[in-house]
């Protein structure tokens, strides 16, 4: 019972964090939302029994990526932060996102395994998963991230040089 409650608590934290990132207009609160989201994901990994992934999430994303974001925003100063407000919340985009989420959940529901803790997961078995069974997915995720990074650079540079 309490394990289920814990699961729901972590799930709500994750979704709420993601919602804050999307809905808030202040940079610092966005970062806090992202932090809640990442902590929630780490908690869900731990709940499922994948301790190594949970700690790696904490180490790399909360301690590394999030801190770098925060460092950049803090270095901008509070006045700059006040101006750095994202564009207004787009109702149409939100409706499309929610619709997409519903379609995905309905379509994939039968394919996804039930969320139950996996017993006997060790550091070795996690390494075997990541570098064995799940290696293609792991590598594809890396390529997608790299493409995202290249896209972000292109956007920041403003397209073709005139």
């Amino acid at each position: 019972m309490s394990a289920t409650l814990l699961w729901w608590g972590l799930a709500v934290l994750t979704v709420a964090g993601a919602a804050v990132v999307l809905l808030t207009r202040e940079m610092m609160r966005m970062i806090l939302g992202l932090g809640a989201f990442l902590l929630g994901i780490a908690g869900l990994y731990a709940w499922l029994g994948f301790g190594l992934l949970a700690v790696a999430e904490l180490f790399v994303y909360v301690g590394g990526v999030l801190v770098l974001f925060l460092l950049a925003i803090t270095a901008m100063g509070r006045d700059a932060d006040a101006r750095a407000i994202v564009r207004r919340f787009d109702l149409g985009a939100a409706l499309i996102s929610i619709g997409l989420a519903v379609v995905l959940v309905v379509a994939l529901r039968g394919l996804l395994p039930a969320a139950v803790p996996v017993s006997g997961v060790t550091v070795e078995s996690t390494a075997d998963y990541l570098l064995g069974v799940w290696l293609p997915q792991f590598e594809i995720a890396g390529v997608v991230l790299l493409a995202g990074l290249a896209a972000a650079l292109a956007i920041v540079q403003g397209g073709d040089d005139e």
Binding site: G35, V55, L58, F59, V62, G63, G64, V67, L70
Partner: peptide
């Protein structure tokens, strides 16, 4: 890993 959260 946890001290990295203190940084925040």
């Amino acid at each position: 890993a946890v001290p990295s959260v203190s940084v925040l």
